[in-house]
Each structure stands twice: as structure tokens, then as C-alpha cells.
Write a protein that binds this DNA or RNA. Sequence first.
DNA 1: TGCTTGTCTTGACATACATCAAGCATCCAA
DNA 2: TTGGATGCTTGATGTATGTCAAGACAAGCA
Lengths: 246, 246
Amino acid sequence: MTTDPYNIACTHGFIQSSCSDCNLKGLCLPIAMDIKDIDKVDNIIKRSRPIQAGEHIYRTGDGFTSIFAVRSGSIKTYLLDDDGVEQVTGFYLPGEILGFDGIGTEKHGCNVMAMETSTVCEIPFERIEELSLQIPVLQRHFFQLMSQQIEADHQMMLTLSKKNAEGRVATLLLSLSRRFGRRNLSPNSLRLPMSRMDIGNFLGLTIETVSRTFSRLQKEGLIKVDGREIHINDHKQLQSICHASK
Amino acid sequence: MTTDPYNIACTHGFIQSSCSDCNLKGLCLPIAMDIKDIDKVDNIIKRSRPIQAGEHIYRTGDGFTSIFAVRSGSIKTYLLDDDGVEQVTGFYLPGEILGFDGIGTEKHGCNVMAMETSTVCEIPFERIEELSLQIPVLQRHFFQLMSQQIEADHQMMLTLSKKNAEGRVATLLLSLSRRFGRRNLSPNSLRLPMSRMDIGNFLGLTIETVSRTFSRLQKEGLIKVDGREIHINDHKQLQSICHASK
DNA sequence: TGCTTGTCTTGACATACATCAAGCATCCAA
DNA sequence: TTGGATGCTTGATGTATGTCAAGACAAGCA
């Protein structure tokens, strides 16, 4: 057991720490934000008790009221089409914000499920809108977050449309690596929070293809695979197979 | 030549009409907006002279200053990856708003090109941010527009990840049909503004597959194809082949 | 301990779509 | 009128990935 406050929050889940104490605040709030403005945001945030693996935070069609910041654990979002076919649309790690679907229609447009025991901060959106009118940097921040989501989704369209299985898997691994690194975790030793099924679903591949691709990348020495434990041996070469080539 | 003000604007391009006169305002501005607030928005908008087919409005890396509303014609957005591989990320028709990429980084994240002679309204984003602080319904509106973009992109991820060629093409045709209908044009007779190349690029297919798919749908009687002129004979059946099934 | 269940891996085979190639129509310039 | 782009269609063939099937491994439970 470490003394990392992130892990304490994760394990006990009832610690009501504040945004200003949170070591993730650089990720979900503007860096250049007044301490008194941070407190204003802090006051409207609801911190949840832990959500168990497989539990939903919201589902398609639920009324939209809040967006969510992941505090610990990991979350997936997915669509269900009319035939019940699932499309995973994103994986969210601590410090990342989800729930920007549904502002347009007042109804959430996707399903959100914890992939492991997780905690989230619930941010009532109407309150954020009110605060944004007083705190321009906050308004800007939320425009930026949504803009980044749009850019990431476009990159994902490129991945799905133009890359082969190796490129897709490598792209995901490097994305996770970068996001682990941003939280000061090792960018080379990852424990994947999601199943092969979720990876395949997200990347538009079958689990068999995902599995074979992991094996191939391992045989080529780029990564070391042990179930969900992944070690990245060669970032550069992984990068170089990320290019489009179907 | 019709007397549709849309076409007049398109053909001459220099007519400086205002938002309150624009027959597209229901699409790009909130419906429930005060006339005096509309005028405030109107005052910050720059109306461009016509942009020729193939001309760019901005490119990846250009400084982000404005978003754009399509006034006439049609626009595509696309990414270029390191190897020069292109991914079309969207098609934009009159009344639709583009350019939400780049708010996060202050640099545009994609390229924007006119597919035919087009006119756009340039909306300086900082001015919109300022106005949004005074006009809450405007702030909400831009959050909603971005949210809709995110939802549309997620649907696109499902299309690319889970649908076969027929499903992808049918999904695009119905999307265009709906958007034509929203502008009070026939939802059954479309003139496609984009090439087979752009369609294929957008849908993650080759032009040959796009062409064959059009031919097949025609042989099955669902559509009538004449170059870029498409007539939809059977919306219902087109809908029914949109489901995921790779 | 054995049984069940879920997750992952690996192999054999099938197929949707890519690739390669040819041909047609339209447009434009010489 | 000719020649050369450009855009689109159609056919023949190849291949990456899907599908089907079997088995390994670990976790949980009786």
C-alpha cells in the first residue's frame, strides 16, 4: 500500500478531499485558476462513493444533468444500436472528463460503465454554466475540453478507417502509455484496465485478432505481454507501425 | 434560376444579408434568441466572398481564431497524418457549423476545403466567448453544438467499426437526406457534393467498393444512381441495411 | 479436489473488401 | 478534331481479418 492520495481515495472512497488538494486538478481544471475560483468549483462538485466494476454511471436516454471527472479506477463509454450491437467509444482514466454527449438533447447519448472499482466527481452542468458566466477562464476551459474530445474522436476515425490491426493496437497502447505518463506513472509498464473484448470492440477488431496482434508484437520484441500487464520495450518502433496502412 | 435567397447568396456571394434575414438562422443560432441578441452576434460575423472548389479555409496548424458557418455550397474537413494519408472527418452543408477543433490548442487540428463554390460566415471565437458571458443562451448553444458534434463523431466510430460497405454507404445517404430535408430540400433527390473518392475516404472504403455498392443498391431498387445525382426510392429498406454487421 | 465459468490464445478455413487492370464518359485545351 | 486529364464503373484476383473450433489457464465455489 502506498501513501499516494490517489490510492487512498480509490481504496476507501469516502475521503472527501477538495479540488485544491487533488493531485489530478492539473488535468481537469485550468492550470491558471485562482484558488478562490477553484473553491467555487469545489463547492458544486459531488464526490461519489466507489462504483463497482460493471456498474453504470448513466445510460443512454437518462436525463443529462452532470459531467463526470474520473477520480480513480477506469471507465468505458459505449453506444448500443437498435440491434443491441455495442460500440465502445472511449476509455477514461483518472483526471479525464466524460459526459459531454447529451448537452445538445438534454438526454445522455451513451452508456458509461466502470471497468473496475472507480470513483468519480460529479459536476452538475447547469452550475458550471452559471459559474462559467462569472469565470471566463472556466468557460474557456470547458470549450477546450470539448474541443479536445472532438480532435481525439477524429483521430479515432482515422485509426478505424485507415489502419490495420497492428496500427490500431499500437495506437491504443501509445495513447494509454502517454496518459499513464501524464499521471506520473510509468509509461512503459501498463496494466490494461479493459478486457480484450473491450479493446477489440473499441478498435473494430475481434478478440482473436487483438490476441494475435499482441502475440505478434511480442514475438517481434516491441512489447512484453502477460495477460493485462503490458511492457513496452520499443516506443519508437511502436510509433512507426502506427501509421495508416490498411 | 430560383428566387431562393440561399441561391442568390450563393451565386453573387457579396450580398451582405444579416443573421436575422438569413433563412438558415434556425440551424446555426438558438431558436429562442432575442432579436437584439441576434444583432449582437450579427455584428461580429464576417461574411466571406465566395470560396472556390478546392480552396482551403484553413489548414492544420493555422492559428485558431474563428469558427465558421456554411452559408452556401459544401465543405469537407480532413486530417493529414505524418505519411500524408488523408482522412475526411466530415462534410458540412449550409446551416452547419465547423471549426470546433483547435480551441484546445489554439491551433487548428484539421484542414477545411470547399468541395464546390461556397460562402461561409466567419465567427471570431473570442468575441463569441465574450458575448456568451452576457447571453447565457448563446453559451449554452455553443456547448450544445459541440456536444452534437461529439455525438455525431461517436456514431461515425460505430459506422466505421461495425458496419459493412452497404451499411456505411446507406448511413451516409440517409444522413445527407435528413440534412437536405432540414433545409426544406427534397430528402429523396440528392445531388452529392462530394466525389466517390471523398465518400470512400470518409467511410474507410476504396472508390471501387463505393462504386460497386452504389451499383448494388441500385440493382436492388433502393436507390437510383446517375453520377452524383441520387434518388432514394426506399427509405425504409435503406434504413434497415444501416444496422451494424461487418 | 474437481467443477464451472470467464478470459485469453492459437489454429484452420471462409469471405468481404482491397488491389490491380481495363474501359468508358466528360471536359478542356491545343 | 484530337489528346490527355479526371472521375466513375466493372471484372479478376489476392489478402487481412472474420468465423468457427478447441484448448489453456486462473478464479471462485461446492
